[in-house]
Amino acid sequence: VSSEIYQWVRDELKRAGISQAVFARVAFNRTQGLLSEILRKEEDPKTASQSLLVNLRAMQNFLQLPEAERDRIYQ
């Protein structure tokens, strides 16, 4: 997982004009609270716990989908 993931998520929230709650639900089936905590802490993926890595990997995989497909999912 790239250490850029945190910025990618922030950029996607702005680009798509969606809330953290929507992104958390569709990208990795978690709550806004968890996403907020992940973004606030910005732990280095190289030293992250296994559970954090699973979530970061799910977010990264979601962000690799084509933009149009992500936008459809947000609706």
Results as ranks from 00 to 15, higher is better:
71 D>Y: 04
72 R>L: 09
38 I>F: 03
39 L>E: 01
30 R>H: 12
50 Q>F: 10
62 F>A: 01
29 N>D: 09
56 L>F: 01
4 E>N: 15
2 S>P: 11
31 T>M: 05
7 Q>S: 15
48 A>T: 05
67 E>Q: 08
62 F>N: 03
10 R>G: 05
67 E>P: 11
56 L>I: 05
72 R>D: 12
41 K>P: 03
8 W>M: 15
43 E>T: 09
11 D>G: 07
5 I>W: 01
11 D>C: 07
71 D>K: 05
54 V>N: 07
39 L>P: 04
57 R>W: 06
49 S>F: 03
20 Q>K: 11
18 I>E: 00
60 Q>T: 08
71 D>W: 01
53 L>H: 07
20 Q>R: 08
30 R>C: 10
36 S>W: 06
34 L>I: 15
30 R>N: 14
8 W>Q: 15
15 R>L: 00
39 L>T: 02
47 T>C: 12
11 D>V: 08
69 E>Y: 10
66 P>I: 04
28 F>M: 14
73 I>V: 12
3 S>M: 12
68 A>Y: 12
40 R>T: 14
42 E>F: 03
15 R>I: 00
74 Y>T: 01
16 A>H: 06
44 D>S: 11
36 S>N: 13
48 A>G: 11
11 D>I: 13
59 M>Q: 03
29 N>P: 05
64 Q>W: 10
74 Y>N: 00
35 L>T: 04
15 R>Y: 05
64 Q>D: 14
21 A>H: 10
46 K>F: 08
39 L>D: 00
37 E>M: 06
4 E>H: 11
44 D>H: 08
9 V>S: 01
47 T>H: 14
9 V>K: 01
6 Y>G: 01
25 R>Y: 05
11 D>W: 10
35 L>V: 03
66 P>E: 08
6 Y>T: 00
1 V>A: 02
13 L>C: 15
70 R>T: 00
48 A>E: 01
42 E>M: 09
58 A>K: 14
19 S>R: 05
50 Q>N: 14
33 G>S: 14
75 Q>G: 14
37 E>P: 03
12 E>W: 03
3 S>W: 11
39 L>N: 00
63 L>V: 06
70 R>E: 01
12 E>T: 03
69 E>W: 04
61 N>V: 08
66 P>G: 07
24 A>L: 06
71 D>Q: 07
20 Q>E: 09
14 K>N: 14
59 M>P: 00
48 A>R: 02
61 N>D: 14
27 A>I: 07
3 S>F: 09
3 S>I: 11
53 L>S: 09
73 I>C: 09
14 K>I: 11
27 A>S: 10
21 A>Y: 09
19 S>C: 07
45 P>V: 11
26 V>S: 13
10 R>N: 07
60 Q>E: 09
22 V>T: 08
55 N>A: 07
62 F>M: 03
42 E>D: 04
68 A>M: 12
1 V>K: 00
68 A>T: 12
21 A>F: 12
21 A>M: 12
44 D>P: 10
46 K>I: 12
19 S>G: 09
13 L>H: 00
53 L>W: 05
74 Y>Q: 01
11 D>S: 13
16 A>C: 08
64 Q>R: 13
31 T>F: 03
